[in-house]
């Protein structure tokens, strides 16, 4: 296992001295997890492996942009893997768009003063919170993250009224906010 602090140290080692051993440690921890995550959305093992490798290569390239005060390593990796999955889908179905566009969205430049979400704490609390969601809420959250489906599509799939899905999402996110606001000023 790799703690959040250890993972952040490894990313910083890549940024400061192109540390290949650090990269290998990150790869061993995260590549199989990203692969499993992508496969839950229905991708085959080969496609999922490719997304995971592309995501880890992006970690290498962009290591200097990682800011441990803003996001945990797992959170940062999630955003990268999501973007790689979008690229992958668009390459298959739609013309590609530049991944860089997505990465700039939360670049440090818009950090301003609101670093109120302390990355490590947020991440730990979110992990605790996941265990506390009801089965109904968890299904909707997992379908969104794993299968990248909009709430409208999820409602159709679950044969539920749109309002019901919206309220489950809002309840789940309300718990997320309540749990985290204890950490925020």
């Amino acid at each position: 296992m790799l703690s959040a602090d250890e993972a952040a140290d490894l990313i910083e080692a890549i940024a400061t001295r192109q540390d290949r051993a650090a990269f290998a440690s990150l790869f061993r921890h995260f590549a199989p997890r990203v692969k499993a995550f992508i496969m839950r959305g229905g991708a085959d093992a080969e496609a999922a492996q490719e997304v995971a490798q592309e995501a880890l290569i992006m970690v290498w390239r962009k290591a200097a942009s990682f800011d441990r005060t803003r996001a945990s390593a797992a959170t940062w990796l999630y955003t990268i893997a999501r973007n790689k999955r979008i690229d992958h889908l668009r390459r298959n179905n739609r013309p590609a768009i530049d991944t860089e566009d997505w990465l700039t969205v939360f670049a440090p430049e818009d950090a301003d003063a609101d670093k109120s979400v302390l990355a490590g704490q947020t991440y730990t609390r979110v992990k605790e919170l996941l265990g506390g969601l009801s089965a109904d809420q968890l299904v909707v959250i997992e379908k969104a993250f794993f299968e990248d489906k909009t709430h409208t599509v999820i409602a159709e799939e679950l044969k539920l009224p749109l309002g019901t899905v919206k309220s489950r999402i809002r309840l789940a996110l309300g718990r997320l906010r309540d749990a985290l606001e204890k950490d925020e000023p």
Binding site: S72, A74, W76, Y78, F106, T122, L129, F145
Partner: peptide
């Protein structure tokens, strides 16, 4: 800033979902 904080929390939820994943069987 309000929506940005929510997006940061949601990204952290994505991170927790990845971290919770058992390694793919290979």
């Amino acid at each position: 800033p309000h929506s940005r904080r929510m997006v940061e929390r949601l990204n952290a939820l994505g991170g927790a979902l990845i971290e919770r994943e058992p390694a793919a069987e290979v």
